[in-house]
C-alpha cells in the first residue's frame, strides 16, 4: 500500500517537529518550513511518519495512500 506525505501549506507554521522526528525524509528550508522528500514513504519509516503526523501542532502533515 503506497503512502505519501503531504503538507497542508495553509496550516504549516514552521514548528519543525516533523523534521526532528523524520529527518530521513524531512529537512527544513531557509525559513524553517519542511522540505519533504518526494515519493513513497519506505516501509521501515512508516511508523515514524505516523508519529510525525500526530506530533504536528498544526495538523499540517498528512499521510495518505
Amino acid at each position: 500500500m503506497s503512502r505519501r506525505l503531504h503538507v497542508d501549506w495553509t496550516r504549516c507554521d514552521a514548528h519543525g517537529l516533523c523534521a526532528e522526528l523524520l529527518p530521513e525524509l524531512v529537512e527544513l528550508d531557509d525559513w524553517g518550513y519542511p522540505v519533504v522528500a518526494d515519493g513513497e514513504v519506505p516501509e521501515p519509516l512508516v511508523g515514524h511518519a505516523r508519529h510525525a503526523v500526530r506530533a504536528c501542532p498544526q495538523l499540517a502533515l498528512l499521510l495518505r495512500g
Binding site: W9, C12, D30, Y33
Partner: peptide, 12 residues
C-alpha cells in the same frame, strides 16, 4: 499570504 515558502521565498 497563507503559505510560508511562498511568502518568504517570493519576498527573497
Amino acid at each position: 499570504g497563507q503559505c510560508g515558502p511562498c511568502v518568504h521565498g517570493l519576498a527573497a
